[in-house]
Amino acid sequence: MKIKEMIVVEGRDDTVAIKRAVNADTIETGGSAINETVLKKIRLAQEKRGVIVLTDPDYQGERIRKIISRAVPGIKHAFITQEDGTKNGDIGVENASPATIIKALSELRTEMAESEGEISVEDMVEAGLSSGPDSKARRLKLGELLGIGYANVKQMHKRLNAFQISKEDFLRAVAAVNSEKGDRP
Score class of each variant (00 low, 15 high):
G85F: 05
I101Y: 01
S179C: 00
E168P: 09
E144W: 07
I68E: 06
K19Y: 09
A173Q: 04
P98G: 11
I18M: 14
T29H: 01
Q82G: 15
S179A: 15
L129V: 08
M156H: 13
V93S: 06
K2W: 09
A17I: 06
T29P: 01
V51F: 03
G143V: 06
P185D: 12
E83G: 01
E144I: 08
V16Y: 13
L105C: 00
E114R: 13
L142D: 08
I3M: 03
F170W: 10
V53A: 12
A17G: 01
I91C: 14
K87M: 14
D56C: 01
D90W: 11
E28P: 03
A176Q: 15
A137R: 15
K2S: 10
L140C: 12
T100W: 10
E107M: 14
G50L: 02
I91Q: 08
S97I: 10
S179M: 14
E118K: 11
R70K: 15
A127M: 03
Q46A: 04
K41R: 11
K76L: 03
L146Y: 09
D183T: 08
A78S: 08
A24T: 02
M124V: 08
M124K: 11
K154A: 14
G30W: 00
R184S: 03
L39I: 13
T26D: 03
K141V: 06
R184Q: 07
G31T: 01
E5A: 05
K87E: 13
F163P: 08
A96Y: 05
L142K: 06
K66M: 05
G89T: 06
N152G: 08
V9S: 02
K141N: 09
S106E: 14
K154T: 07
T86L: 04
V121G: 11
T100R: 08
E107R: 15
M124I: 12
E111G: 07
I64K: 09
A33N: 12
I165Q: 10
I165R: 09
H157E: 10
P133G: 15
H77T: 01
I64W: 07
K158C: 02
S115Q: 14
D58A: 09
I42K: 01
P57A: 04
A78H: 00
I102H: 05
I18N: 07
D13W: 04
S166E: 10
E62D: 05
D84P: 00
A24E: 07
G85N: 04
N88G: 11
V174C: 05
I3Y: 02
A45H: 02
N95E: 15
D169W: 09
A24H: 02
A173R: 03
A78M: 05
E83M: 10
S106K: 10
S97N: 10
S120R: 15
I148S: 07
A104Y: 01
K181W: 12
G149C: 07
G50F: 00
E28D: 03
P57I: 00
S69K: 14
A21H: 06
Y150P: 04
L108I: 03
E180Y: 13
T81Y: 05
